[in-house]
Amino acid sequence: MSKIKELIKKHWDIVSYLFFGVCTTIVGWVTYWLFMTLFSSFGMNGELNIIISNVISWIFAVIFAFITNKLWVFRSKSFDAKTLWYEIGTFVSARLVTLLIETGILAGAAFLFGSDNNVINMIMKIITSIIVVLLNYIFSKLIIFRKKGEKKEEEKNSEKVLENP
């Protein structure tokens, strides 16, 4: 049991990111399904419904993800205005990039396979969610919530080479 605790502690950012990533994905999927269903009941179908539902679900997921990533995953405790605005700005920017990737894939799949097939749309949503989770982790870990004292691995390695010629 202590080995499991050690592993979790050692890899906290990955373990917690996966947990909250799953929660964020669920928030995104549930809100996507709700808005797809809601808009369909008002007669909106096709690519427009997919894109609008995806963007709205993205907003809900990004708000949830920012809060959980900041507080629990990467434990960024600074709430000074400069740091907070940097984190929000880079977080939203990175998420916009992955939103465009996700939306492009979903729209492309709808074009190729038909937009009224909700089973295929949800399968594509699952595939894009995996891609998006991986990209978002990389952006968050290496750019957004990187601790000021942390050096990039390349910087550490280059310092070791200079110290030990």
Rank of each mutant, 00 (worst) to 15 (best):
I4Y: 14
K10Y: 12
H11E: 01
W12F: 12
V15D: 00
L18Q: 05
C23W: 12
C23H: 07
T24D: 07
T25S: 08
V27N: 01
T31N: 07
Y32E: 14
W33S: 13
M36Y: 05
L38K: 01
G43K: 04
G46R: 02
G46V: 04
L48F: 15
I50Q: 02
I50S: 01
I52H: 04
S53F: 03
S57A: 09
S57F: 09
A61Q: 04
V62G: 00
I63R: 04
A65P: 05
I67C: 11
L71E: 06
V73H: 02
F74P: 09
S76G: 05
K77S: 13
W85K: 15
E87V: 01
I88F: 03
S93D: 13
R95L: 09
L100C: 14
I101E: 00
L106T: 13
F111P: 01
V119M: 08
M124V: 13
K125E: 10
I126S: 06
S129C: 06
S129Q: 05
I131Y: 06
V133Y: 07
L134C: 15
Y137M: 04
Y137D: 02
R146V: 05
K147Y: 02
G149C: 12
K151N: 08
K156W: 13
N157H: 10
N157M: 12
S158H: 12
E159R: 11
V161L: 05
L162T: 11
N164S: 11
